[in-house]
Nucleic acid binder design. Structure first.
Lengths: 143, 143
DNA sequence: GTATTTACTTGTATTTTGCAAGTGCAAAAG
DNA sequence: CTTTTGCACTTGCAAAATACAAGTAAATAC
């Protein structure tokens, strides 16, 4: 599995030990911006992640306490949601999205882009509280 | 050299095509947060980047228009500074730094962390304008 | 003139990633 | 109640990226 090896005491380096790859943040993006939550959902994203990489990253994110597995009904029997630690990554995803939009003038959803330009902090607060609520709804025993 | 291959139209994915590795953002961090600007400076950072990787990333960042080479006096005869496109990555570095601080409770400079908590947008504006000025001072013919 | 530093390049070992294929399990179909 | 289908992975191998060691040429430093 992708190992988290701390290269230095620098917090930027520490973050890159987690997110310094092409896939980890895409899974979080799928959850945060596209409402996805199953293995199959992630697999269908346009970037075409391989199954073994996806398995690996989900395991890593779960072990690191950013994602939690929960049982679901229907064909997919497992879902993934952000934990309280996981939602703290939302600002990073948002900055990546904004940079991509500015350099590539491609669109996120237009509404979201507009909302972000108007009140970035507010959008982040909203997304965070939404995913915290999802987390709590899957967690029988909130602390 | 590290090639930038666009995997999808998604702006997050687009950003990760640039920064989805363990080293690129560390170079930008060194410039933005530590005032470094030569090959030797970057080499001495705690994470221990290999010379060939550093060469590769500097070339990529220059080709992509995020960094500019400029001549300097003294031992190092080449310096690197952020371009106008390059400074747009500062918010990403800052978010990475803040996440690292929050999860690892390690220190950036304490003053910087405190300033960021008080007025993140202001700090980003300051850093941006500082590096834009550096860029202009090395650029004989601003457009 | 010799040593050192800078800015790389080259070569090789190791690690990570991409892709194809296969496995085990549960639900749906016949 | 078999068979099929889809999901959630796991395994194996090839290709690419990265780490580490060594070497090179040009510009100082002494």
């Amino acid at each position: 599995m992708k190992e988290i090896k701390k290269r230095s005491e620098c917090p930027v380096s520490f973050s890159l030990d987690f997110f310094g790859d092409k896939w980890t943040l895409l899974i979080i993006r799928d959850i945060v911006l596209h409402g996805k939550h199953t293995f199959g959902d992630f697999l269908q994203s346009a970037e075409g992640i391989a199954t073994n990489i996806l398995t690996d990253r989900l395991k890593m994110l779960e072990e690191q306490g950013l994602l939690m597995k929960y049982p679901v009904a229907g064909k997919a029997r497992v879902g993934y949601c952000l934990t309280e630690k996981g939602v703290t990554t939302i600002p990073i995803v948002i900055e990546m999205a904004l940079w991509g939009v500015s350099q590539n003038n491609s669109d996120l959803k237009k509404e979201l882009t507009a909302a972000l330009r108007k009140d970035k902090a507010g959008v982040i607060r909203q997304l965070t509280s939404h995913h915290i609520q999802l987390y709590r709804s899957h967690n029988p025993m909130p602390h």
